[in-house]
Design a protein around this nucleic acid. Structure first.
Lengths: 158, 158
DNA sequence: CCTCAGAAGTTGAATCTTCAACGAGTTGAG
DNA sequence: CTCAACTCGTTGAAGATTCAACTTCTGAGG
């Protein structure tokens, strides 16, 4: 259904849903970052860099792989890693097999910091999301997320 | 159910839902901003500043009210308004009735810019969210958002 | 009156992100 | 072998956000 100006504006129900969703989109990440910032001096991306490395074999990943994982550009990651390196949480070295690549490595100190931080983070994820939704709601949210991701990716791909 | 370390980690189903949701949380706003940036040189907050003003009586709002509306700190808003002002989209003047307040006003030029931009934005909201979810999914997403917002606000309030 | 507490905004410095240019390393074609 | 094309990653400058003062204005209490 299109209006006279050719634009399919949102119905009032759609608008209400979008408003609520959109506000949540802004507030939830901010609330989660608050905890990470307060307890560990890290932002969302930095936390996920450490978390991603901690799951990788030898706690090592290439910069480019890490960039995809944390959904961030290489340039941003490079600056960010310099800061994390200065704090002793990671180190970088050129890949001995192929000099084009740089390996990012989680240090023991970085791992310890992550271990200290993770329980509080999981608790907030539960408090804000997992524990306020029942089984069916969570499943619905999962499905919605998948659908939205598919649509966004489809748009990216051309 | 707690594990031996006293932390209620996520079950594999919860983890899968969280991963998907969390990725969507990062990608969707970025994709929407892309369109606004490309077509109008605005980011999300800037767009909502213009949109908020356009709905207000006399296209005028106080800075502090606008800050709440767009979910942003006053300082950030002040810097941002200086930039929008330089582009001619808004202007600011002290409230004649109470000098503590500053009124932000949408100019005709700003309104015209918004009108040019809105259809493309709504189209993306449809493409990424509204049109990929059926009636029930959208209602579920709406409900989830409300629940999450409630939990986040409850945390903020103490 | 006077001043003092408090809210609203602004500002500048520090931090973080984005953007465009660059350097280094690898591969493949000629 | 060498050159060109390509990818990976870094860098510095410009732009945006955060943080901590600071100013201005009002209204309440003495």
């Amino acid at each position: 259904m299109t209006t006279s100006d050719g634009v399919r504006w949102l119905s009032s129900g759609e608008l209400a849903a979008w408003r609520s969703f959109s506000l949540m989109l802004a507030r939830l990440p901010a609330a989660l970052e608050d905890q990470l910032q307060r307890d560990g001096g890290l932002n969302f991306v930095e936390y996920h860099v450490l978390a991603g490395l901690s799951d990788a074999p030898d706690r090592t990943m290439r910069m480019s792989g890490l960039a995809v994982l944390v959904n961030s550009e290489l340039s941003r990651l490079s600056h960010l890693m310099r800061r994390l390196e200065k704090r002793g949480f990671v180190r970088r070295e050129p890949d001995p097999c192929d000099g084009r690549y740089t390996n990012a490595i989680l240090t023991d100190e970085g791992f310890a910091h992550l271990v200290k931080l993770a329980p509080g983070h999981v608790a907030k994820v539960r408090e804000f999301v997992i524990d306020v939704l029942d089984r069916h709601r969570l499943a619905a949210l999962h499905a919605c997320s998948e659908d939205i991701l598919r649509a966004v990716d489809a748009c990216d791909r051309e």
